[in-house]
Measured scan of single mutants.
Amino acid sequence: EEEEKKKEEIARLLGVSKEDVERILKKNNLDIEQLLRRVQREN
């Protein structure tokens, strides 16, 4: 699934687990696209 791939990509870029990414998304109330763009910009 596309969303899972995005979570895995974010996890890889941040050096965290996919579960961490899911927690970040919930905690910050971000959607996956916003987080992915933010992470890609910083790297």
Rank of each mutant, 00 (worst) to 15 (best):
V16F: 03
E33T: 05
I24D: 02
N28R: 03
A11D: 00
N28Q: 12
E19N: 09
I24N: 01
K5G: 10
E33I: 04
L25G: 01
R41D: 14
K27G: 07
E8G: 10
L30H: 04
Q40M: 09
N43F: 14
L30F: 09
A11H: 01
E42Q: 11
E2A: 11
K18A: 06
R23A: 13
V16A: 04
L13G: 02
K26C: 11
V39I: 11
D20I: 14
Q40G: 04
G15Y: 03
L30V: 09
E19Q: 12
K26S: 10
R37W: 08
E22T: 07
D20E: 15
E4W: 06
K7G: 01
L36V: 03
K18Q: 06
N29P: 03
K6W: 13
N28L: 15
K26A: 12
L14F: 03
E42P: 08
E42W: 05
I24Y: 10
Q40E: 11
R41K: 15
L36H: 05
K6Q: 11
E8Y: 10
D20W: 14
L14R: 01
I10H: 00
L14Y: 03
V39R: 00
E8R: 10
L35G: 00
D31N: 11
E8C: 03
R38N: 14
I32E: 03
E42S: 06
L13E: 03
R37D: 15
A11L: 01
N28V: 08
I10P: 00
V16W: 06
E9Q: 13
K6I: 15
K26E: 12
R37P: 01
E2Q: 10
E1I: 12
S17N: 07
E19D: 10
L13H: 05
I24G: 01
K5L: 13
G15R: 10
R12M: 09
K26I: 13
G15N: 10
R12N: 08
V21I: 08
R12I: 08
D20F: 14
R41V: 08
Q34H: 05
E2F: 08
E9S: 07
K6D: 05
N43Q: 15
N29M: 07
I10S: 01
G15T: 02
E2K: 08
S17Y: 04
I32Y: 04
K6N: 07
R12Q: 08
L36K: 02
K26V: 13
V39P: 03
R23L: 14
L35K: 00
K6P: 02
E9N: 05
L13F: 06
R38L: 15
K26F: 10
L14S: 01
K7W: 05
K6G: 06
E1S: 13
L14H: 01
Q34Y: 07
Q34R: 06
E4G: 07
L25K: 02
E1W: 13
N28I: 08
I24K: 02
K5I: 12
I24C: 08
K7T: 04
V16I: 14
D31Q: 07
E3S: 11
E42C: 15
R23D: 13
S17C: 06
E1C: 05
D31H: 06
K27C: 09
N43S: 12
E19W: 11
E4I: 08
V39C: 09
R41G: 14
I32L: 14
Q34T: 15
K26L: 13
D20Q: 13
S17E: 07
E2N: 11
K18L: 13
R12D: 04
D20A: 13
V21F: 02
V39K: 01
V21G: 00
G15M: 06
N29K: 09
K18W: 06
V16P: 00
R38S: 14
E22D: 12
L25A: 10
D20T: 14
D31E: 08
I24W: 08
S17F: 04
K7M: 12
R37L: 15
R37V: 14
I24E: 04
N28D: 14
E3G: 10
L30R: 02
I32K: 01
S17K: 09
E33D: 15
L35H: 01
E1M: 13
K27N: 12
R23V: 14
R38W: 15
G15S: 06
R41T: 11
R38G: 06
E9C: 09
L25V: 06
D31L: 05
K7R: 05
K18P: 07
D20C: 08
E3P: 07
E42R: 01
I32Q: 01
L14V: 02
K7N: 01
D31G: 08
R12C: 09
K6T: 09
L30M: 14
E42G: 08
R41E: 15
